Amino acid sequence: MDGLFRRAHTARARFRRPRRGTNSRTTPSELSNAPPAAPGCRSPGRGNWFWSLVALGAIAVLLLGLTGWLYRQDHADNAARADRDNVVLAARQGVLNLIELSHTDAEAAYARLVQGTTGALRDQLTQQAASVT
């Protein structure tokens, strides 16, 4: 077992890049004379690209999912903000209609007030319209 490890280790060492500052390079004839690697041992660099691509793909999918989720949250916030603005605008108009009630044009002011209401309050105001004007 020890000899098998040594042979695989020395075979790997032959395929390594030389350190910076050294002039030793492996020639093609030296590569052809290299002993075969032990069974089950991979040469360095083989398969590294595959796992790098898998990791990059996973990161890309994660980023796309996060972007989609953030877009959906922003869209929901914008819709809620628009609904709130519409409700505030309707409430302001209702308050203005109440404030602008006057005896000079009671019928028009009362009609604007009834138009800005809904539900049971609207029913009650329409029933009382004859007595108010």
Rank of each mutant, 00 (worst) to 15 (best):
G3N: 10
G3R: 07
L4Q: 09
L4F: 07
F5M: 09
A8R: 01
A8G: 12
T10Y: 10
A11G: 13
A11D: 05
A13P: 02
A13R: 12
F15E: 08
F15Q: 06
F15Y: 07
R16M: 12
R17A: 13
R17D: 11
R17Y: 05
R19G: 09
R20I: 10
N23R: 12
T26L: 15
S29F: 02
L31D: 09
N33T: 06
N33S: 14
C41T: 15
R42W: 07
R42N: 06
G45T: 11
G47H: 03
N48Q: 15
N48S: 15
W49Q: 13
W51T: 14
S52L: 11
S52P: 01
L53S: 07
V54F: 11
V54I: 15
A55V: 03
L64C: 10
G65D: 02
G65A: 14
L66H: 02
T67M: 09
G68H: 01
W69I: 04
L70N: 08
Q73H: 07
H75D: 15
A76P: 00
R81S: 09
D83V: 04
R84K: 12
R84W: 04
D85V: 04
N86E: 12
V88K: 05
V88M: 08
L89S: 14
A91Q: 08
R92C: 06
Q93T: 07
Q93C: 01
V95S: 04
L96Y: 04
L96P: 00
N97K: 03
N97E: 08
L98Q: 02
L101W: 01
H103Y: 04
T104S: 10
D105I: 03
A106C: 09
E107P: 00
E107W: 05
A108W: 04
A109S: 13
Y110N: 06
A111G: 05
R112C: 02
R112G: 02
R112Y: 01
L113R: 00
V114N: 01
V114K: 02
Q115M: 07
G116W: 00
T117K: 01
G119L: 08
G119A: 08
L121F: 06
R122F: 01
R122T: 03
D123S: 13
Q124D: 12
Q128N: 08
Q128V: 10
A130N: 06
A130Y: 02
